[in-house]
Design a protein around this nucleic acid. Structure first.
Length: 508
DNA sequence: TCTCTCACCTT
DNA sequence: GAAGGTGAGAG
């Protein structure tokens, strides 16, 4: 897939010329953040600190959209699995000389528990109390604004796990059978999408997702392949009870009328809906997408969702229809399509060279809140924008500017995220005056959070992450908002994670 | 329901 | 060549 992400609500009100230039460069990226403009808003102080121009663009927006349309979900293991599509963003509007910490965490999208039955996800009860969350600190942190803006910021190595005891600091999304009780919420930008977690057997249940991943994830390339390979593989895996049937022959695109996922029709909005922005009272602008009401966390009525990826056990109900996504996304691998990232990252120099190695990245810091949020359901209005619907989103990112970087106000972990019904989000650590930060001086000058939203579903040891309901247009992947620097760590979570339980695992 | 293992692939 | 990621089946 080409690295084309234009036409998705690009910034229209850059804070300064530099931001404009960067925006121009990011023209193919998805806008994730908006600008805080109102001087009378709660974000006024933030604005004064120069956070108003910070924007975050989601990379590979089209791919995210594809997954969003189908209903993203992923299998999470105890060993930890990377998210796919990987979370990459382009940040603009930072002060080139100021140091920032880039964080990401995962929060529940809602407080429900889900089960997959009758070919659909349905609420089975209320989610259990949220667990303390973790924040994944980008291994390059802290780094100057120039550094962050120089190239894409990739969270590709972030792993999700359902093992809350994970010693590597993977992001826990919870696990066990209870799974999808929540939708995760990306928090860097306006949450326009939802990430819900669902308990899924041991494989992805939503049709289309598997194929999408196979076609796009280079590591799953082994599942692509010719008919010969299909036959070979099927032959290898065939059981005594089932005949060898090429996978290509067991996929079916079912008509709407017969889809087991029949339900409300999700209509991906036109670009007009994606690009328009609204000004929040707090000064944070958001897109019209933000105004959309929360939708069914697991709408599976889209056309794409009606595509069955059958297994041998299902071939009786399948035909030979080919997956519509197969071709479009087979052209290039994510790595191939990302020349910007590939070319620029290796050239990084300066402050953070020590973070460049693989081992260093694995040592990316993980931080957990000391106490779980009182409200498992993030109220976005409480965060920064009252037009921000309390809709779970998938991931969020926060940019924190800081001066000294002695210690972060969170419990430290070594590397990955463990799973729980969480939503990844990039969160900022800055703007705290908490004693935990170290001294009487605020470590951070300002902070901006950015988020976009895929849905994460979770199931037992193997959890699935699901994409946001289509009614929540992923179109608006740009957003940013500030947080008063006077917040304590606890307050921070109130702001960024109200209800977001970045982590709680429930392994059985 | 969950863990292990597999073949195949990328890094 | 080693390490690691992937979806899926077996148990």
């Amino acid at each position: 897939m080409a690295d084309s992400e234009e036409g998705f609500g690009l910034p229209t009100t850059p804070a300064d010329s530099e931001a404009k230039e960067l925006q121009a460069e990011a023209k193919q990226d998805t806008q994730l953040g908006a600008t805080s403009k109102s001087p009378t808003s709660p974000q006024a102080a933030f604005t004064q600190q120069g956070m108003e121009g910070i924007k975050v663009f989601l990379h590979e927006r089209e791919l995210w959209l594809k997954f969003h349309e189908v209903g993203t979900e992923m299998i999470i293991t105890k060993a930890g699995r990377r998210m796919f599509p990987s979370y990459k963003v382009k940040v603009t509007g930072l002060n080139p000389k100021t140091k920032y910490i880039l964080l990401m965490d995962i929060v529940p999208a809602d407080d429900h528990r889900y089960k997959f039955a009758d070919n659909k996800w349905s609420v089975t009860g209320k989610a259990e109390p949220a667990m303390p969350g973790r924040l994944y600190v980008h291994p390059d942190s802290p780094a100057t604004g120039a550094h962050w803006m120089r190239q894409l910021v990739s969270f590709q190595k972030l792993k999700l796990t359902n093992n809350h005891l994970d010693p590597f600091g993977h992001v826990s999304t919870g696990g066990g059978r209870r799974a999808p009780r929540s939708v995760l919420h990306p928090r860097v930008a306006s949450p326009t999408t939802i990430m819900a977690m669902s308990p899924i057997p041991t494989s992805i249940v939503l049709a289309g997702i598997t194929q999408l991943k196979i076609e796009n994830n280079p590591f799953a390339k082994g599942f692509r392949g010719s008919d010969d390979m299909e036959l070979h593989r099927m032959s290898r895996m065939q059981s005594k009870e089932y005949p060898v049937v090429p996978r290509s022959t067991v996929r079916q695109k079912v008509s709407s009328n017969h889809s087991p996922f029949s339900g409300e029709t999700r209509v991906l909005s036109a670009s007009s809906n994606l690009g328009s922005q609204y000004q929040c009272e707090n000064g944070v602008s958001s897109t019209s997408q933000d105004l959309l009401p929360p939708a069914n966390p697991y709408p599976i009525s889209q056309e794409h969702n009606q595509i069955y990826h059958c297994t041998k056990r299902k071939d009786e109900e399948c035909s030979t229809a080919e997956h519509p996504y197969k071709k479009p996304y087979m052209e290039t691998s994510p790595a191939e399509e990302d020349p910007f990232y590939r070319s620029s990252y290796p050239q990084q120099q300066g402050l953070n060279t020590s973070y460049r190695t693989e081992s260093a990245q694995r040592q990316a810091c993980m931080y957990a809140s000391s106490a779980p949020p009182t409200d498992p359901v993030p109220s976005l209005e409480d965060i920064s924008c009252n037009t921000w619907p309390s809709v779970p989103s998938y991931s969020s990112c926060t940019v924190s500017a800081m001066q000294p970087m002695d210690r972060l106000p969170y419990q430290h972990f070594s590397a990955h995220f463990t799973s729980g019904p969480l939503m990844p989000r990039l969160g900022s650590v800055g703007n705290h005056t908490s004693p935990q930060i170290g001294d009487t001086h605020s470590m951070f000058q300002h902070q901006t959070s950015v988020s976009h939203q895929p849905i994460v579903r979770q199931c037992g040891p193997q959890t699935s992450i699901q994409s946001p309901p289509s009614s929540l247009q992923p179109a608006e992947f740009l957003y940013s908002h500030g947080v008063p620097r006077t917040l304590s760590p606890h307050q921070y979570h109130s702001v960024h994670g109200v209800g977001m339980v970045p982590e709680w695992s429930e392994n059985s």
